[in-house]
């Protein structure tokens, strides 16, 4: 269990984090979601032991970050947003560096290096200089460097920024593997789909405040109403208002309804009778982005 207790952090006049508290269960994947500048990276830096001057405390297992920092750091594998590698050295040199920093050496390091290289799919490139790697390969090596010491907690700060879909999938499979092995994962991203796909619970953060925290399905149920999505040139708000509460979404409308299936049926009948041809008419599954919109009144990507 990781317990974050009343964390606040101030950068001169800016309050980056404002009395944040929540708990993460062991062996789960926790998603920290929020727009750029919300305070995600600051919280990640505090969790990973980089930022030391903050108010509040963090408990990891039976340890307190204020008194057992080194023990906690030994349990953590931190994957930063930036690619932190020595580019003029080989992949193997980088792994040796980070392995040594976590106290691995000799045969133990050698075995772990081979396992990690296999896991990140870079076994054939171990002796090549990092400077010759693609962005996706560097990202994977960046992750590998944090996994050598078999951390029980893996902190990932936007690990998929600026990479191709193939490397993203490869990173996702590493995360699934870590979850299967029982690691606790703290995953920060502003890509909603990723968080929805990977995480068991989430914390929504905005302007340094924790807006909401809980299990994904509970939050979706709590905030996102069942609805229909409809779009097309001949579709007008006045017509839709007969069937329920309407709000515009993208190029179409969301029609909120307590009984979406029945509304769908009525709407199909109405369209048939009036010769209306919607471009899209479907049940709308609530998304994480809708929760964020409900809580803050802003779209995450526009923030």
């Amino acid at each position: 269990m990781i317990s974050i207790e009343n964390i606040s952090k101030q950068y001169e006049a800016i309050k980056a984090l404002n009395h944040i508290s929540f708990k993460i269960d062991e062996g789960t994947c926790f998603g920290l979601v929020g727009p750029n500048g919300a305070g995600k990276s600051t919280l990640m830096k505090i969790l990973s032991g980089i930022l030391l001057d903050f108010n509040g405390d963090i408990h990891v297992k039976d340890w307190k970050v204020s008194t057992d920092r080194i023990k906690i750091k030994q349990q953590i594998g931190y994957i930063p947003q930036e690619i932190c590698l020595e580019e003029t050295l080989t992949a193997q040199d980088n792994l040796i560096l980070f392995g040594n920093l976590y106290g691995l050496k000799g045969k133990e390091l050698q075995i772990r290096m081979e396992e990690v290289l296999q896991q990140i799919g870079l076994k054939d490139r171990a002796k090549d200089k990092v400077i010759t790697f693609s962005g996706g390969m560097k990202r994977r090596l960046n992750i590998g460097c944090a996994l050598l010491h078999k951390p029980s907690i893996v902190i990932m700060d936007e690990p998929t920024v600026g990479i191709d879909p193939q490397s993203r999938n490869s990173i996702f499979s590493i995360i699934h593997q870590l979850k299967a092995e029982g690691s606790t994962i703290i995953y920060s991203s502003h890509y909603m789909e990723e968080v929805e796909q990977l995480c068991d619970s989430i914390g929504l953060i905005d302007k340094g405040k924790l807006m909401e925290f809980g299990r994904m399905e509970e939050l979706l149920e709590k905030y996102a109403k069942p609805s229909l999505f409809i779009s097309g040139e001949s579709i007008e708000t006045e017509m839709l208002q007969r069937f329920g509460e309407v709000e515009s979404k993208g190029h179409g409308y969301l029609l909120n309804s307590e009984q979406p299936l029945l509304t769908l049926e009525n709407l199909v009948t109405h369209c048939r009778e009036h010769s209306l041809e919607p471009r899209r008419l479907e049940l709308y599954h609530p998304r994480l982005e809708d929760i964020f919109f409900n809580l803050t009144g802003t779209q995450l990507r526009d923030s």
Binding site: K45, K73, Q74, P80, Y102
Partner: peptide, 11 residues
Amino acid sequence: RGMVARIASTP
């Protein structure tokens, strides 16, 4: 490159 922060996250 962020290496200072990355190393600070190690023991």
